[in-house]
Each structure stands twice: as structure tokens, then as C-alpha cells.
């Protein structure tokens, strides 16, 4: 396959970026998208140019590090995958592929296609945990949990924190990410203990960081590589109002 890559190049966080076109030839349809990027970078290095900086690590769709916005879709033209799982057979020979970084105020560009997603860590630090210390916990089977609740919690917990939901959302909203964590814990007895406190703190942090608001467009769900459902957002809404209306003030 021969392709033209239109890639966003930006030397640093405060510098202006622009699109640069790169032709690539003889790409195997069986290679992954990132392997195609590797080939491009090898060529750039050989020429003495600076390779395109992009985040990636596990290359099996679970670490959540890869983050390319390809032809208008986070993680590119396939469903339920990350960029590293995208294969070139999804493109047509001769195609021009536009590659951009995630764009959102809370995800500033570091370089080229690398963005800073530490805002997600901050949201988790605001309350995305169960406050138990190591040791002194009850036996794992002490509290039976209905299978359906455990399954739904697992559905929500499958989030890899890649930020595709924010990237896909026309409002750069982080609701799907935040609600996935809120839901996971709200569904489990272990997490229920501090559920009211958690949801308020996480939502407040999300707002503070400058993510947009949810308009229930559901692009997040459509683009989520782990198919996290927007029912989690509704659950978070419920949890939040219940907490605001019913919980005693601290």
C-alpha cells in the first residue's frame, strides 16, 4: 500500500503546530498502524530528521497509552480498539490519512502527537479509590456480591484511561471516564461505603480541570475502545444527585 500521512507536528507545548505531509510506500496491510509509524520514523531517522513523537507502550490495547486521532476518529476507523490494534487493512491504497493529537484543554500537547493526560490521574486522586490500607481486610468471600453487579462493575472497570472519550466528545467532556470509575465502586459493596463522598469529589475535580459538559451525544460510547456504556453516566448522575440531596454535609 502507498499512503500519504498528514501528521500534526508541534515541537513543544507552547509552540505552534502544523500539518506536515509524509508519503509512505510498500506498507503491508497486515501491519499495525503503529508499525507503519515505526517504519516512517525509521526513514525519518535515517534521513536525519526528527521522528514523529507519539505515545505507545503495550501495543495490545490495554495500557491506554496510544492516543492518535485518525481521520476524525480517536483510535481510527475501527470499532472497539485502540490505535495500536488498528491494522492497515482498514485503509485503502492511495489514501491520505490525517493524524492529530487528542485535543482538549485539559490534555495539552507535549510534542507532536503526545498529550499530557495527567488530569485523569488527578481525577482518580480526588476520590477514585476505596480508602482501605494494606492488611486488616475481611476475607474475600465474606461479602457475597450478586454476579450481575460484579459483571457490571467489571464492564465499567474495563476503562483503560486512554482519553478517547474526551477526544471524541464534541465538548471534550470526561463524563464517561469519570462515570466508569464512579460506577465500578458504586456497584460494589466495598465501594458503596464512601460512594457519596467519592462522586462529589470526582465531579468537582473534573469540572475544575476544565473538561466540557456532557450533552448526551454519546460519541464517547461509540469510540470507547473498551465499549464502556453511557449508562454509567446516568448512574453517576443518579449517584451525584442522591449524594447532593441526601448526604449530610461534612
Amino acid at each position: 500500500m502507498n499512503l500519504t500521512l498528514k501528521i500534526w507536528r508541534q515541537p513543544g507545548p507552547d509552540e505552534k503546530g502544523q500539518f506536515v505531509n509524509y508519503p509512505v510506500s510498500d506498507v503491508s496491510p497486515d501491519s499495525s498502524f503503529l508499525e507503519m509509524m515505526d517504519v516512517l520514523n525509521e526513514q525519518l531517522v535515517e534521513k536525519g530528521d526528527e521522528p514523529v513523537a507519539f505515545d505507545h507502550d503495550c501495543r495490545e490495547g490495554i495500557c491506554g497509552m496510544c492516543s492518535m486521532y485518525i481521520n476524525g476518529r480517536p483510535h481510527g476507523p475501527d470499532d472497539a480498539i485502540t490505535t495500536c490494534q488498528l491494522h492497515m487493512r482498514k485503509f485503502k491504497d492511495g489514501e491520505t490519512i490525517t493524524i492529530e493529537p487528542w485535543r482538549a484543554k485539559p490534555f495539552p500537547v507535549i510534542k507532536d502527537l503526545i498529550v499530557d493526560r495527567s488530569s485523569f490521574d488527578e481525577i482518580i486522586q480526588a476520590g477514585g479509590f476505596v480508602s482501605v490500607d494494606t492488611g486488616g481486610v475481611p476475607d474475600a468471600n465474606a461479602i457475597p456480591i450478586p454476579k450481575i453487579d460484579a459483571d457490571l462493575a467489571m464492564d465499567a472497570a474495563a476503562c483503560i484511561g486512554c482519553g478517547a472519550c474526551v477526544a471524541a466528545c464534541k465538548n471534550a467532556s470526561a463524563m464517561l471516564f469519570v462515570s466508569a470509575k464512579v460506577s465500578q465502586f458504586a456497584l460494589l459493596p466495598q465501594g458503596k461505603v464512601e460512594a457519596k463522598r467519592r462522586v462529589q469529589k470526582m465531579v468537582a475535580k473534573m469540572d475544575e480541570l476544565g473538561f466540557g459538559n456532557c450533552t448526551n451525544t454519546y460519541a464517547c460510547e461509540a469510540e470507547c475502545p473498551k465499549e464502556i456504556k453511557v449508562t454509567n453516566i446516568a448512574r453517576m448522575n443518579r449517584e451525584f444527585f442522591a449524594a447532593k440531596v441526601c448526604a449530610p454535609s461534612e
Binding site: 492488611g135 481486610v137 476475607d139 468471600n141 456480591i145 454476579k147 472497570a157 465500578q184
Partner: peptide
Amino acid sequence: NIIDQCVAQGVPFAREYGGLL
């Protein structure tokens, strides 16, 4: 202890219909 710890942290291990691991 690890299993106990992880369950307490809210790790959603697979469960049977009876609610046990």
C-alpha cells in the same frame, strides 16, 4: 491476603451466581 486485599479495594473479580468468587 492478596485476594482479600484486592477485593477490599473494589477489584471486580469474576463471581458465581451465589455471589462468591
